[in-house]
Design a protein around this nucleic acid. Structure first.
Lengths: 144, 144
DNA sequence: TCTTGTTAGTTACAAAAACAACTAATATTT
DNA sequence: AAATATTAGTTGTTTTTGTAACTAACAAGA
């Protein structure tokens, strides 16, 4: 009558994914939070501008899969920290082009390096094949 | 001078993990949210009580890796919905034993079934070996 | 016994996220 | 051209989370 099956939360992939995501995010967080006072969305926005150069907020929303209100607030925060500047576009004054300042580029280079190193160390515990499988499965589940 | 490397956010495992976790969680969410008005933590607490029987809040914190304040609020919410009841323990009055009500057990059975089905369908797109690798990697990253 | 320390759980307040309503600029339709 | 619809982005309000301080019960040492 107790109806206890053998299915455990640890067998539930979304749960496992959340644990792994939280654990790894928390471990990397100090790099952008403690050192630059950034939130995760700010770091993602900074990353996109550093990686791809000038973009609009909308471009970032689409590429980074972040909601526009979060991007809007992240852009304001990064602007206040003088990591980026906005320029209204002549062609369509609804858009504004976002570009990193020298300080923003420096922060990007630093964080980009840290992220690559972090990822390498995280993945070092797995074989090349395991890494490939992991990435492929995650991308698939994420709908990429 | 533009210093653009080839490292993409999609190559950054924590980012990928977050996307996958968000996507899969969002897809399952309607089961507990729309149908029972539960939050994710509530569903996790309910799951533990349904799966393992009587437990204290502390037990759930440890097993589910959820902070005690979140568990505390989830327990209150589940109590208000009449899905569980508390009983102060004679042996140590700091503890309270949590048990599901009949309604709680019914909800658990339903959600447990849904979760298993959801997981099966999610994993069906991968081979047995891929599934094994994925689970192993995630568990490792999550520190389980 | 009387501190002092530890543990379980709650509560209050601050930070962040989610959601909806809004403005301003441009496109489209009539 | 006037009305309507879209689009980019912001702002305001409500939920939810995170953090820290708190209470109550028990434990242990002086």
């Amino acid at each position: 009558m107790t109806n206890i099956s053998n299915f455990d939360l640890r067998d539930f992939t979304p749960y496992l994914l959340n644990l792994a995501a939280e654990a790894s995010s928390l471990e990397f967080q100090p790099h952008y939070k403690d050192k630059y006072g950034m939130l995760r969305t700010e770091w993602r926005v900074l990353f996109h501008l550093g990686r791809y150069g000038e973009m609009t907020a909308k471009d970032i929303c689409d590429r980074a899969r972040v909601h526009k209100t979060k991007v809007s607030r992240a852009v304001s925060a990064l602007e206040k920290k003088r990591f980026l500047k906005r320029t209204q576009l002549e062609s369509d004054r609804r858009h504004e082009a976002l570009t990193l300042t020298p300080a923003g580029r420096t922060a990007f280079r630093d964080l980009n390096r840290a992220a690559q190193a972090f990822d390498q160390e995280l993945m070092a515990q797995f074989s090349d094949e395991e890494q490939a499988v992991l990435r492929r499965c995650l991308a698939r589940i994420a709908g990429l």
